[in-house]
Design a protein around this nucleic acid. Structure first.
Length: 209
DNA sequence: GACCAGGTCCTTG
DNA sequence: CAAGGACATGGT
């Protein structure tokens, strides 16, 4: 079976299993901040940090620009890597302000402009950039993470990690809600089966028939 | 106590 | 280019 076909089956199987779920809600500013905070970190800890940031009025890009690094570090400590993440938040916020003016002004730019810009910031890799595009700006930019790769390996997809983004984008109709849903499904499925090593119960490895 | 989490960057070979 | 380490806290 072709890779693309396998991926389509994964996508529809996941939808059958989980249906419509709400995942990573929040305005553009919070998604941008959360995208940095969630790097290599459990989402529950990110939520705690976001709550603290909200209470302290540091939950927008503009406020990140204005707030002392030390104060941000304290607020996001529970997400780990808090010094690097503070530096990344600062650099990203400064970049956004300097090259776009503001978060709302980013909306008028094309996906590719935004993506290239985001990727030029130290600390923003592909997954972070695509998360911001998909969940923060409603674009059709598919997020590939470690789980996606794992599931694809498990399903017998031959393409390497680098090619997965293009494959998923070819397999999914370009509707933002589908994009966010599929990525969400992959994460939920992975936590439920791969992480808990319940591989015997996993249908992904039997896509053939 | 060991091991991992919704990554990314930097250094080495 | 691939592999290995650093970044750090919190949960199982």
């Amino acid at each position: 079976m072709e890779d693309i076909q396998r991926i389509k089956r994964i996508v529809s199987g996941l939808y059958d299993q989980y249906g419509d779920i709400s995942w990573w809600p929040g305005d553009s500013d919070e998604v941008i901040i959360g995208a940095i905070l969630t790097q290599q970190t459990r989402w529950e800890n990110v939520e705690k940090a976001l709550e603290i940031l909200r209470k302290q009025n540091i939950s927008s890009v503009e406020q990140i620009n204005r707030t002392d690094a030390g104060k941000i570090e304290d607020a996001i400590r529970c997400t780990g890597f808090y010094r690097v993440k503070t530096r990344r938040l600062k650099e990203l916020a400064r970049f956004i302000t300097e090259s776009f003016g503001s978060v709302s002004e980013m909306s008028s730019h094309e996906d590719n402009d935004l993506r290239k810009g985001l990727l030029s910031v130290n600390g923003v890799g592909e997954e972070t950039a695509d998360s911001i595009l998909c969940y923060g700006f409603g674009r059709c930019s598919f997020v590939i993470d470690a789980y996606t790769e794992r599931i694809c390996r498990c399903a017998g997809v031959k393409a390497g990690k680098k090619d997965l983004k293009a494959l998923f984008e070819a397999a999914i109709p370009c509707e933002n809600n589908k994009y966010r849903l599929v990525h969400a499904h992959i994460v939920e499925f992975s936590k439920e089966y791969c992480v808990k090593k319940r591989c015997e119960e996993c249908w992904i490895k039997n896509l053939e028939e």
